[in-house]
C-alpha cells in the first residue's frame, strides 16, 4: 500500500512537471502585442522593446523557464501582470476560490441528494409517469443550450419572486438561484447514470436469484444494488468535488459571483502568464490528487480491489 502511494506520487510529480512545461512553451507562442495592451499604438518601437525586456520576455526561453521553476521551488507563484498588476497570483486565486468551492460543493451535494434518488425512483417505476417526467427533464437539460435556460431562470424567477437579480453575499436568498442553476446539469447526469445502472443491475442473475430466494425487494435494493452503485461514485467523487473550484464561467458571470469561473479565460486572453501557469498547476494537481483519492476511496469501498496489482488507468 505505502509503496504504491509513493510510486503514484512520484509519477504525479513527473506528470505535473511535463504539463507545466508544455503549457509554458505554449504560452510563449502568443503574440507579443497582447502584453502591450492599449498603449501599443502610442509607444515607439524602442519604448516597446524596453517594456518587454522589463517583463522578462526578452530572456532566452530556457532562462525564463528556469526562473519560473526556481521561483516555484521557493513557493513563489509570481505576480500578475495584466490581470491585477503586481498583485501576487496566490492572493488573486485565494480571494476567488472560496466562492467557487462553496457553490461547487453545495451543488455536488444537491445534485447527489436529488439526482441519485431521482434515478432510483425512475428505475423502480420504469415506464410510468415518474420515469417519463424524469426522462423529459434529462432530455431538456441535455438538449437546450445551458446559456439559454440559465438566463431564463435568472430573469423570470427573480422577476416572479421579486428577488434581486444579482448575487449578494449578505442576502442568502440570492444564493439559491445560482445554486439551483448550477445543479440542474449534474442532477440530470446523476439521474441518468443511476437509472441506467439500476436497470442493468436489476436484470442480473444474482438479483433474480435473490428474488427467487424470497429476499425482500427493499433489501435487494439497499444491500445489493445500491451498494454496488456507490463504488464508481466513490471513485469519481473526490475529483468532482475538487474540480468544482474551477467554477462555472456562465453562472458566475450572470449573477456577479466573484468566483474562479472565467478567471482562466480572462487570464489567457490578457496573456497574464503567471496567472495562467498558476491555474494550470492548480487544476492539474487537483485533477491528479482527485484521481488518486478516488482510487483509494474505491479500494476502501470495494473489497474486490487490492492495491499494488497491476497499474491503474481509468
Amino acid at each position: 500500500m505505502l509503496g504504491y502511494i509513493v510510486k503514484r506520487l512520484l509519477q504525479s510529480v513527473v506528470t505535473l512537471f511535463v504539463i507545466i512545461t508544455v503549457v509554458f512553451f505554449l504560452l510563449r507562442l502568443l503574440p507579443e502585442e497582447g502584453y502591450l495592451g492599449a498603449a501599443a499604438d502610442k509607444m515607439t518601437p524602442e519604448q516597446q522593446e524596453v517594456y518587454l525586456t522589463n517583463l522578462g520576455l526578452r530572456d532566452p526561453i530556457l532562462v525564463q523557464l528556469g526562473n519560473f521553476y526556481l521561483d516555484l521551488l521557493r513557493g513563489d507563484l509570481g505576480k500578475s501582470i495584466t490581470y491585477r498588476t503586481d498583485v501576487p497570483v496566490i492572493d488573486i486565486i485565494a480571494d476567488k476560490i472560496v466562492y467557487s468551492f462553496a457553490f461547487g460543493v453545495a451543488a455536488v451535494a444537491l445534485s447527489i441528494i436529488v439526482g441519485v434518488p431521482l434515478g432510483i425512483f425512475m428505475a423502480q417505476f420504469k415506464g410510468r409517469w415518474l420515469d417519463r417526467l424524469g426522462t423529459g427533464y434529462i432530455v431538456f437539460i441535455v438538449a437546450v443550450p445551458s446559456m439559454v435556460y440559465y438566463l431564463l431562470i435568472q430573469v423570470y424567477i427573480t422577476d416572479f419572486l421579486n428577488l434581486p437579480m444579482l448575487f449578494n453575499e449578505d442576502k442568502p436568498i440570492t444564493w439559491v438561484l445560482p445554486l439551483i442553476s448550477l445543479s440542474l446539469g449534474p442532477i440530470a447526469s446523476y439521474a441518468m447514470w443511476m437509472r441506467r445502472y439500476m436497470v442493468d443491475e436489476l436484470n442480473k442473475d444474482y438479483i433474480k436469484l435473490a428474488r427467487a430466494k424470497g429476499v425482500k425487494e427493499r433489501t435487494i435494493m439497499f444491500r445489493h444494488v445500491m451498494r454496488n452503485a456507490f463504488i464508481p461514485l466513490a471513485q469519481y467523487l473526490p475529483a468532482t468535488i475538487l474540480l468544482t473550484i474551477t467554477g462555472s464561467i456562465y453562472i458566475e458571470s450572470l449573477y456577479s459571483i466573484p468566483g474562479m469561473g472565467g478567471l482562466l479565460v480572462d487570464a489567457i486572453q490578457r496573456q497574464d502568464n503567471p496567472v495562467v501557469q498558476a491555474l494550470v498547476l492548480l487544476f492539474s494537481s487537483l485533477g491528479i490528487i482527485g484521481l488518486f483519492l478516488g482510487d483509494v476511496a474505491m479500494a476502501l469501498v470495494d473489497p474486490r480491489i487490492k492495491f499494488g496489482k497491476g497499474e491503474s488507468v481509468r
Binding site: 435568472q154 437579480m165 444579482l166 458571470s253 450572470l254 456577479s256
Partner: peptide, 19 residues
C-alpha cells in the same frame, strides 16, 4: 460599482427594475 461580466445582457433589465 458592481461587477457583472454579462453586463451587456443583464444591465438593461437591472435598470428597469431599479437596481
Amino acid at each position: 460599482y458592481k461587477y457583472n461580466k454579462e453586463a451587456a445582457t443583464v444591465a438593461p433589465e437591472l435598470f428597469l427594475r431599479g437596481e
